[in-house]
Design a protein around this nucleic acid. Sequence first.
DNA 1: CGAAACGTTGAGCTAGTTCAATCCTGGTGG
DNA 2: CCACCAGGATTGAACTAGCTCAACGTTTCG
Lengths: 240, 240
Amino acid sequence: MSLLDPLVAKLASIGSLSATDRDLLLALPIVSRLVAANQPVVHQGDKPKTSVLIVSGMLARYQELTDGGRQLVSFHLTGEMPDLHTLYIRTMDHSLVALKDSVIGHVPHDAIHAAVRASGSLTALLWRSTLIDAAIFRQWMTNNGRRGPVAGTAHLLCEIMLRSRTAGNVDKDGACEMPFNQQQLADALGISLVHANRTLKALKERGTAVIERGRLRVMDWDALRAAAGFDPTYLHLQDA
Amino acid sequence: MSLLDPLVAKLASIGSLSATDRDLLLALPIVSRLVAANQPVVHQGDKPKTSVLIVSGMLARYQELTDGGRQLVSFHLTGEMPDLHTLYIRTMDHSLVALKDSVIGHVPHDAIHAAVRASGSLTALLWRSTLIDAAIFRQWMTNNGRRGPVAGTAHLLCEIMLRSRTAGNVDKDGACEMPFNQQQLADALGISLVHANRTLKALKERGTAVIERGRLRVMDWDALRAAAGFDPTYLHLQDA
DNA sequence: CGAAACGTTGAGCTAGTTCAATCCTGGTGG
DNA sequence: CCACCAGGATTGAACTAGCTCAACGTTTCG
């Protein structure tokens, strides 16, 4: 039992993790703390000397605009490191916030750098994880752009469900956690709060998917997938 | 004189490149070819065994939607490697196209892997370049989302100008290449062709910036920057 | 119970879309 | 050199998706 187990599991899910690399990971120093829902973790402009590991819970990243608007750019599940990129990019161009009560761990850059120096295969795996992040950004760009609000919403729901599934976070009645409020959902899709609400309502009424009490339940996966034009290739879960 | 010189220059512009690493780069095998404007280079679904280096010219990446719509997700200048990520992510989730007549080189993954194994500092620099790519994606997401069409367009123009400047591609009257047609610009911003046209017109009439004959000329940088809410931090040109 | 945060709904309005015509430019063949 | 053509740029006009504003309902939790 280590705080780092979720990281090991996450990396194993996107590629093959050797025993040596696993041990390197488990030897990383880590300091954990609790973060309450809606509390900031790292701020736009910061130059952190550690990277955050989500031990449990869910975080999101967002950019703050000059006019006060917000753009969510990603969400992150247990085992992920939302600001791994600060290893090679000093200053944060966005902020990190907890979507629900979470336990996070801080891992010093120095230690990660040492691990990376020690193992080429571990480097490859961590690099790969940042590349998958980028692939997700591209899809979100399309969610905000050409895909349009309805398909974009459906696409986001597909992604949440699939990523939760591979993280083993889907319960028996096919629901997974989704602690976004509708404002945050709107900020992730670049639409208004009211429109987000109406889009969700439409999906519910068509018997496709519902969000209730912070959980997403997909009632008709094929319909949701079709509405989204969802192709899971971009999550690159298989092709390591 | 090597086909790889632009790559050396590009990497030197985002971090410090040791003599050893430079020599590793210059020793990479590369096969070049000409690509005419609007010709495809790599296709969504491909599993390339090489990565593309832009020796000269300009390329763009885009996703094709089921309804025929397109989303541009990035553009790339001389010296960049638009599909470096295929090193660790097998299948392309988007396509690569030439925006103008270009010379590209194919560099085998094997050779890059070997170079990466040989030098930790080179690994860091290449990794960093993909992380900067991701930072740009985040901004484009915002361009397509919360920033809105006007500010989004201005932001894109700022980025093009600044990236061209650091690549040394700005001529004396302050103009740089921008071989997008208006449809492509619209596809990059998730707006209609007509609206893209009108937004450009407005920027021109306000004396901010013009695009003429495939070149972008910024007449009032401060005004453009203000309209965009542009903060160049995300390009991470200084903080290596 | 009461307060606060979040979700839902209606109504009017506007930014941005679609459709369709026209103009401009560079390139080609005669 | 000029007529012609194709791709791109520009414009107008009608339409509508999505926004804003504002009210009201619901859940959660101290």
